[in-house]
């Protein structure tokens, strides 16, 4: 399954924030940073499964709401010295609309 799914207009995701997308593969968090770059990760922290969508976004990172693990939004990987990685999805912006790809 490698199709681009239309999610929402960009404005529906707050700057330095996220929205949760409910999918058949589970919740996906779609993040928007200050430069309007978009990132998508499985909404599950590698630490203890906290919802990443509820964290604080800064730069290209998110700090998990439950115990403060910081993940790189680019890769889903935890910032050193922590380890762990959240599954990453492809996401893109086209004419002000956000599209998500749940394929590999």
């Amino acid at each position: 399954m490698s199709e681009w799914l239309k999610i929402c207009p960009l404005e529906d995701i707050p700057r330095l924030g996220a929205r949760v997308v409910r999918t058949a593969q589970g919740d996906v968090a779609v993040f928007r940073n200050a430069e309007d770059e978009l990132f998508a990760l499985a909404d599950q922290c590698p630490h203890r499964g906290g919802p990443l969508s509820q964290g604080i976004v800064f730069d290209r990172r998110v700090s998990c709401a439950l115990h403060g693990l910081t993940l790189n939004l680019d890769s889903g990987a935890a910032q050193a010295p922590d380890d762990g990685c959240a599954k990453k999805y492809r996401v893109r912006l086209d004419k002000g609309v956000v599209f998500l790809n749940l394929g590999a």
């Binding site: 799914l5 239309k6 999610i7 929402c8 529906d12 929205r19 997308v21 409910r22 999918t23």
Partner: peptide
Amino acid sequence: SAEFRAIQLDSCQAEG
């Protein structure tokens, strides 16, 4: 505000 609403993939596809 939208903060409290998740996006349901199916419904937004249909809308799209």
